[in-house]
């Protein structure tokens, strides 16, 4: 009993790592699929940008609102800029990017690849001597990574603007103080740190989406489950990844 369950849990993990290696090898193989890359960049942006904006506004409002309640109690509402800048750039940007990558980008990628898998398009490609990993997966991974970096930027912009609206218009911070204290707790290095994390999330999210799409079972239930598992695995992978990528630069004293 124990062995089948164990192998059921471990086999896909091994398969995923092999797939990741294949993808990284395929990324450097010429010719690079520029057309697919551009199309996928546009595709991922078109499914992710709307959710980013709509998710970013309540996300930021929620955090700023709660943070400002504490600051009002302390009589330090003028520091709301510092809190907003710190929270947005260090964690909210990357974590909200995680949500978007898991919820929007990788699900869309998985649904797309899964549909091709069950229509046997992937098998057809292989028969024609085309490597689906090079043709489909590598451009998608790079496209999602590029998008993740830009989505993180959008999220930070929404965060700072939303924090301003909430702090200044609704909870009584002074506008000059807000802007002035923005960089009290964060610096340019933190921004770069956040962007690097976002790119890594994009790569991992796209890899999970592609892998689960390429291994999806037959029929509608197979595709549905594949997309469902993609979201779950992406969340499960990205949160620990975020911990490591947050802490390692702190431990090394870079940030």
């Amino acid at each position: 009993m124990a062995t089948p369950v164990l192998s059921k849990a471990i086999k896909p993990v091994g398969g995923f790592f092999a797939f990741t290696l294949d993808t990284f090898v395929a990324m450097f193989r010429r010719p690079f699929q520029w057309r697919e890359f551009l199309q996928q960049t546009w595709f991922v942006a078109s499914v992710s940008l709307g959710p980013t904006i709509l998710l970013g506004i309540p996300f930021v409002a929620l955090v700023t609102f709660q943070f400002n309640i504490v600051l009002v109690e302390l009589g330090a509402i003028d520091l709301s800029g510092a809190g907003s800048g710190f929270a947005t750039i260090t964690q909210i940007g990357p974590v909200a990017t995680t949500f978007i990558i898991a919820g929007a980008s990788s699900t869309a990628i998985c649904a797309d690849i899964g549909a091709r898998k069950i229509r046997e398009e992937l098998d057809a490609m292989e028969v024609l001597g085309i490597d689906p990993v090079q043709r489909l997966v590598a451009p998608r991974v790079l496209a999602t990574a590029l998008n993740a970096a830009m989505l993180n930027g959008v999220m930070i912009l929404i965060g700072l603007a939303g924090g301003y609206v909430f702090g200044v218009y609704l909870q009584g911070a002074s506008p000059g103080q807000y802007v002035d204290s923005l960089d009290l707790l964060v610096s340019f290095k933190d921004l770069v740190h956040g962007e690097i994390r976002a790119v890594c999330f994009g790569v991992v999210g796209a890899l999970i989406g592609c892998y689960r799409g390429m291994t999806c079972g037959a029929g509608p239930r197979g595709v549905g489950n594949a997309v469902n598992e993609t979201v779950v695995y992406t969340f499960l992978a990205l949160f620990p990844l975020n911990i490591m990528l947050t802490q390692i630069p702190y431990s090394l004293g870079i940030v």
Binding site: V47, P58, L62, A108, G114, R119, P220
Partner: peptide
């Protein structure tokens, strides 16, 4: 089958936004 995959993706996008707005 392809539609089911897309439906799951669309549902996750919508509900993540709705969760945050609700909260």
């Amino acid at each position: 089958p392809a539609g089911v995959g897309q439906a799951v993706g669309k549902a996750v996008r919508t509900s993540l936004i709705a969760v945050l707005a609700m909260e």
